[in-house]
Write a protein that binds this DNA or RNA. Structure first.
Length: 480
RNA sequence: CGGGAUAUGGUGUAAUGGUAGCACGCGCGCUUCGGGAGUGCGUAAUUCCAGUUCAAUUCUGGAUAUCCCGACCA
């Protein structure tokens, strides 16, 4: 009976990473393709992950005194044009409305690719005095960027994110805020996503259009391509000037304030999927998992069904501080359910059948290690917490080790090219910071400058490309 | 936007110039249930528009869509 049943397996992660990634998303019902190319549907299970991210990150954002607001998704074209590098950077990917109410519009309307312009237009109205500063607002919303080669979660025409926008009296305050934000994100990625990465500053070429400096959290995916997890921009006065944001300082002088903006998007879920999951399916870190524990009642024979179900409910009640679900379905076999929940990446599974009831215990199984332990009822809560914490910790450790193993220092361009052609990963190398070298490297190896690690120190060295004097080691990688 | 490929039930596939088969799924029944159960009955398909032909799902042309590879991608 068992032999003739063919397991419906995913394609192996190591065999076709790209297909594995798409398969796992569709099969685990995180998301589906939409009728419009480039857009995706967040199904309940996938959206629940975003809801968890939102809930936790929202608390962190609010802790820093940033308040939530909501601005319109439609922006008059003239607003977007106020900052020249901003419009230049975004114009290839804008969605533009030309008809409204059946009539051709006199002024085109842009569907927001990001909200700096419309928010700063309002800020100009609201800010008058030094007493109004710092001003800090955040919004959870959707944005539209017309991407030509979409991928589920990683690059879609419409995506969800939070974007925060702050205004400060001085440059140093703005700089401090943009660094605080990127550190908050880095902590968040490490603690909740269990993904280690490199925190750093973007090169001029990779910077946000309109920013003075851009900070990023760069993560390494299992195919050794880099994924930018979020960004924080010090906008300095680049927007406050054209948007005419002014305030009177304590001495009564009119001053131009300094600004920051920072955001994290649903792309982060793509990283979450790629980094932790395996050939069996998803592995979702406990702190973000929609379901942390799944209870599977095992009906060996028909005699004690109601007793086992009742026990399952009791267990769920004992674990009321966790996100728990009982799989009571009768039309699926136990084996089927095990596979299903492994595919869905639920961190812990509890098995409860008549054997366990007789011994006053349950079986606890970890998704990441597959380890099974017997736990008696009175220790249920503490053991569950311990097991979830351990999974969270192990996933992070694994990610940290992977990052370490695949970050290599290189000083010879030949080695650089060689590694980029084969194994890839993060390459740490001296760069003279001339955009021409950056462009040449991209042309020849497809690798781009990911960031300058935030803790880097000045050293004496030679640019990996041109050999001229360089003082800092940058991170290069093939980017998503 | 350039190069290539594909288009058959909900999904994955097979075959054919003349009757579209299989598996999964789905619905109902019975037997099952400790690592993806068995069985019976049922359900549902040739992308669109032309052309060739007695006859096109099959051949030809076009349209459209999707996928892969490039270019683009805060």
């Amino acid at each position: 009976m068992k032999e003739c049943f063919e397991k419906k397996q995913l394609i192996k992660k190591s065999k076709d990473f790209s297909k594995w990634y798409t398969d796992i998303i569709i099969r685990s019902e995180l998301a589906d393709y939409s009728p419009l190319k480039g857009c995706m549907v967040f199904m309940p299970y996938g959206f629940a992950i975003w809801e968890n991210i939102r809930k936790e990150l929202d608390m962190e954002i609010k802790k820093a005194g940033v308040k939530n607001a909501y601005f319109p998704s439609l922006i008059p074209e003239k607003l977007l044009k106020k900052e020249s590098s901003h419009i230049k950077g975004f114009s290839p990917e804008l969605a533009i409305i030309t008809i409204g109410g059946g009539k051709k519009l006199k002024e085109k309307i842009i569907i927001r690719p990001t909200s700096e312009t419309i928010i700063y237009e309002m800020y100009a109205k609201w800010i008058k005095s030094w007493r109004d500063l710092p001003l800090a607002m955040n919004q959870w919303c959707n944005v539209i960027r017309w991407e030509k080669r979409p991928r589920l979660f990683l690059r879609t025409i419409e995506f969800l994110w939070q974007e925060a926008h702050t205004v400060h009296c001085s440059y140093s305050e703005a700089e401090k805020e943009s660094k605080r934000a990127i550190n908050m994100y880095a902590d968040f990625y490490r603690e909740f996503f269990a993904i280690d990465g490199i925190l750093g500053e973007k090169s001029e070429l990779e910077r946000f259009p309109g920013a003075k400096s851009t900070y990023t959290y760069e993560m390494l995916m299992p195919d050794n391509k880099a994924l930018q997890g979020c960004t924080s921009h010090n906008l300095a006065q680049n927007f406050s000037k054209p948007f005419n944001i002014r305030f009177l300082d304590k001495e009564g002088n009119e001053k131009i304030p300094y600004q920051t903006s920072w955001g994290l998007s649903t792309r982060s879920i793509g990283a979450l999927i790629m980094v932790h999951s395996d050939d069996q399916g998803l592995i979702i870190p406990p702190r973000l998992a929609p379901i942390q524990v799944v209870i599977i009642p095992i009906f060996h024979d028909k005699t004690r069904i109601s007793e086992i179900e009742k026990k399952s409910e009791e267990i769920k009640n004992i674990l009321k501080n966790f996100r728990v679900e009982i799989d009571k379905r009768k039309n699926y076999s136990v084996g089927w359910k095990f596979n299903e929940w492994e595919l869905k990446g639920v961190p812990l599974r509890i098995e409860i059948g008549k054997k366990e009831i007789e011994k006053n215990q349950i079986i606890l199984v970890s998704r990441d290690s597959g380890e099974k332990i017997s736990v008696s009822y009175n220790l249920l809560e503490s053991k569950t917490k311990k097991a979830l914490d351990l999974i969270q910790e192990n996933l992070f450790k694994k990610s940290r080790e992977y990052l370490k193993e695949n970050t290599k220092e290189v000083s010879d361009y030949k080695d650089f090219k060689n590694i980029m052609n084969k194994k890839r990963g993060f390459l740490k190398a001296f760069w003279c910071e001339n955009p021409k070298c950056e462009a040449k490297i991209k042309e020849e190896t497809k690798a781009t400058v990911r960031c300058l690690p935030i803790n880097s120190v000045e050293e004496k060295g030679k640019c990996i490309y041109c050999g001229k004097k360089a003082s800092r080691k940058w991170i290069f990688a093939l980017a998503y």
